[in-house]
Amino acid sequence: MTTLTTMTDCSVEPMTADLDGWKVIAGNPGMKTWIEYTSPDESMITGCWEATPGTYHATYASWEFIHIIEGEAVITPDGGEPKTIKAGDALMLEADFVGTWEIKQKIFKHFAIKLK
């Protein structure tokens, strides 16, 4: 059986705490996370994420596909080169990513995270 789940309306109550592995290092950013879908075997989640200007240091434990809907940020892997992302961009961050997210303009993204 095939099931279709839409996730563009952020219809669930958002989590407002900073995500595990994310630490504020500059400014006063805030985030909201809407988990719109969890696969039956709990190996995948999808949803929406919003963050306000400021900088986080992030440590990823899982693979994440990202599609930026609104805003702009500079993502810099520790020891790596910065990459500016903005509305319309899509990217993949691997489970071992460690680096900063400098949110320049409020970010709104869709995401898919592989947990297992």
Rank of each mutant, 00 (worst) to 15 (best):
K32G: 12
T33W: 02
T33P: 00
T33F: 08
W34G: 09
W34L: 09
W34F: 14
I35N: 13
I35W: 06
E36T: 06
E36H: 10
Y37N: 12
T38S: 14
T38Q: 14
T38C: 09
S39N: 11
S39V: 08
S39K: 10
P40D: 15
P40N: 11
P40S: 13
D41H: 12
E42N: 14
E42I: 05
S43D: 13
S43A: 13
S43E: 10
S43V: 04
S43L: 01
M44D: 03
M44K: 07
I45C: 00
I45N: 06
T46F: 07
T46K: 01
G47L: 09
G47N: 02
C48D: 03
C48N: 15
W49C: 08
E50D: 06
A51H: 05
A51I: 09
T52D: 11
T52V: 10
P53V: 11
P53W: 11
P53H: 11
T55F: 08
T55A: 03
T55I: 06
T55V: 12
Y56V: 04
Y56G: 00
Y56R: 02
Y56N: 02
H57T: 03
H57W: 02
A58Y: 01
A58I: 15
A58H: 03
A58S: 15
T59N: 08
T59W: 04
Y60R: 01
Y60Q: 08
S62E: 05
W63S: 07
W63R: 08
E64C: 01
E64R: 01
E64V: 03
I66W: 05
I66Q: 06
I66F: 01
I66Y: 02
I66T: 14
H67W: 02
I68A: 02
I68D: 00
I69Y: 05
I69P: 00
E70H: 15
E70I: 12
E70V: 14
E70T: 13
G71H: 09
G71I: 12
G71N: 09
E72S: 13
E72I: 08
A73P: 08
A73V: 02
A73T: 03
V74G: 01
V74S: 01
T76S: 00
P77E: 07
P77K: 09
P77C: 00
G79F: 02
G80M: 01
E81S: 15
E81N: 12
E81V: 10
E81A: 15
E81R: 11
P82H: 04
K83F: 05
K83H: 13
T84S: 11
T84L: 14
I85Q: 10
K86P: 06
K86D: 05
K86A: 14
A87E: 08
A87K: 08
G88W: 10
G88C: 09
D89Y: 09
D89K: 04
A90F: 00
A90P: 02
A90R: 06
A90H: 02
L91N: 07
L91G: 13
M92A: 06
M92H: 14
M92K: 06
L93G: 01
L93M: 02
